[in-house]
Design a protein around this nucleic acid. Structure first.
Lengths: 209, 209
DNA sequence: AATTTTTTAGTACATTTGGTCTAAAGTTAG
DNA sequence: CTAACTTTAGACCAAATGTACTAAAAAATT
């Protein structure tokens, strides 16, 4: 029924749709196949297991995230750059939200994906460290008030980044994608506020309004 | 094999143990029964479904949390009180960690529990609002620098409270319960630091050391 | 055009799971 | 002691799922 070369892509697309809608655990290989009007054995021919599909989708996400980070756009000011890139990042992540929602479940039975995920986390931490170092140099962020203060802050924002989607699933089932991203990107940005210098705070208020 | 009146308690205890260890989705009624050396039909006699067990365990957690909050101990200073009660709360929650780890999965098919959960969240938000209001009055926390700043902060710490356990499952599988709680209670407390007044910060440093 | 490779569907099987039903065993109350 | 009840085990069923195997259909290569 698929008949062309992008069978694999179509499978990934449909799987992503179903995973996001019903939760990873509630979607079987057979269901994905049925929804695509193909036999389940045909699907298995392309992807041996559901975990292989999850891994492939995680790769897709990774590629998009890398593409986003490589397009090194420079913004006039720190807060604006942070705000824009946060939103863009959140949007990409939201499209693959099942990965975050069912993260524990998925990683538990997919060691390869877990390794990849932890690797990405390290890169993310380094990225934040860079951003912060530069912002402190530019006097947008204040200096640390106790040793490693910003390392703890990075841990906090990483936890936020990992879990805002889960939170939205519980508390804001009624909102649209745009509303959710606006809401949580806003909340994320506001985590930075108390660390801003006075001039940084001025810029902050200009963006918010 | 159980033969006494606390069959229900024993079931809850074993179920909790298995849910925490293997994840809610990976534990069947039959497995719990097998581990207890009883027949699965016997278990079903006590709890019709796995969701009933989850609901009962959530009730247990709730009772313990209420008991903790009712023991209105007053601490000499704000930060110390926050720190102690955070740790106590985290400990209780950790014992029932499957509820947080598999929250989405569980709430998806258990509307009653979802309602209860959302109700608890409201209470929690009010509790934090109280704590903050008093701390601002006592000049431990600074005043808001923009409208509703502390409401956003409450949203942030609620997200943290809901997800630190999940985070620990991914990033710190090797740590003990005590280590995990120390780590995340510390991180939680440090979220408050930037909002402290100068005198509040002094108290903070005294506790940390 | 023939053959080789890739893709697809169908079938069948074992396992797991939730669930029902029945009867036996144990407990309690009159 | 007996009757009523509570608790328990076992047998059975149906649905879902992953998996393997086979053969046909389609596509690509020669």
């Amino acid at each position: 029924m698929l008949k062309n070369k992008n069978s694999k892509e179509k499978i990934l697309q449909k799987a992503l749709e179903l995973f996001n809608a019903k939760g990873f655990a509630n979607v079987s290989i057979r269901l994905i196949a049925t929804e695509l009007n193909i036999s389940h054995s045909n699907l298995i021919y392309h992807y041996k297991t559901k975990n292989d599909i999850a891994t492939a989708l995680h790769n897709e996400l990774l590629q998009k995230a890398i593409a986003l980070n490589t397009q090194a756009v420079t913004y006039s000011d720190f807060m604006e750059g942070l705000f824009v890139s946060t939103k863009q990042g959140f949007e990409i992540l939201y499209d693959y939200r099942f990965l975050m929602i069912d993260l524990n479940f998925i990683l538990k039975e997919n060691q390869a994906l877990k390794t990849a995920f932890l690797e990405v986390e390290k890169v993310r931490a380094k990225m934040y460290q860079n951003v912060i170092t530069i912002a402190v140099e530019n006097k947008d962020l204040r200096k640390e008030l106790y040793p490693n203060e910003y390392d703890f802050f990075i841990d906090q924002i990483k936890i936020f980044s990992d879990s805002w989607i889960v939170s939205s699933q519980i508390y804001h089932t009624d909102l649209t994608k745009k509303e959710i991203i606006d809401l949580y990107a806003d909340l994320f940005i506001k985590m930075w506020f108390p660390y801003l210098t006075d001039s940084g705070k001025e810029k902050f208020f200009r963006i918010i309004s």
